[in-house]
Amino acid sequence: MLNIVVCIKQVPMVTELPWDEKTGTLRRDLAAGMMNPACKRAVEAALQIKEKQGASITVMTMGPPAAEEVLREALAMGADRGIFICDPILAGSDTYATSFILAAAIQKEVPGCDLILCGAYTSDSETAQVGPQLAEELNMPAAAYAEHLDVSGRILRVRRLVDNFRETLEMEFPALVTISMERYEPRYASFAGLNKAFMETDIPVLNAEALGITAENLEARGSRTKVRRVFIRKTQKENVRITGAAASAVSEFLDRYQWAISAVIGKSIEAEKQA
């Protein structure tokens, strides 16, 4: 039977968190947490594989104590086991450190797992880096932004749309795939499932020590980047004014913004060179 690990993350429920001018930090406390939407789709992808050919699904998260909630939700959706990595010394890990910690937990708790799924990106930081870096840690073939997975024996077939190319990739287990937002519309957890996830399931909590992570190896394998400050994007728009006859206004506008527009619409709107 396939052994699947799904790595999930709790994110704030709103995209626009109130900003505390005095302390220069986000009021995370004001937002309820939720399972990151792409992670929820990764859980759904795992459940669909389980329904088709049978699998044991372990969900794993790292976060503050409240993050346990997303594991319970994944269990309610149909995952079999939850693993919670929670330790204040791991707080503030960047993707480099997070992928190292997750890899350590997977190697310890789910050795020999066949497939690791992650959400392609999170709604709070949107780096999309943890999945690919976890693949490096575990030395696995990987594909990001998957829209559909097919398992046949030990072969995983991944369909995805990247940079406007529709690709079908194949790799052998063990492999890591990050799931995009495009397909795998997640199921709702039933209330029976939620109740059971809380009343009948134990979730082991792993701290850094349990994972063999010490201050020394965190120094060696831990965060590379440092967030120096976070600030609000200036809301004052540039408000460029263009006047004049319509035809000349159009030319002025298009000449000035052609690259920005081209990047969005995917077509060049560069003026024909004058012969």
Binding site: E69, R72, A189, F191, F198
Partner: peptide, 14 residues
């Protein structure tokens, strides 16, 4: 409690 929060989120999102 966490259970009540999750049940609320679940019903709300539905």
């Amino acid at each position: 409690c966490m259970k009540h929060k999750l049940i609320r989120n679940s019903a709300r999102s539905f």
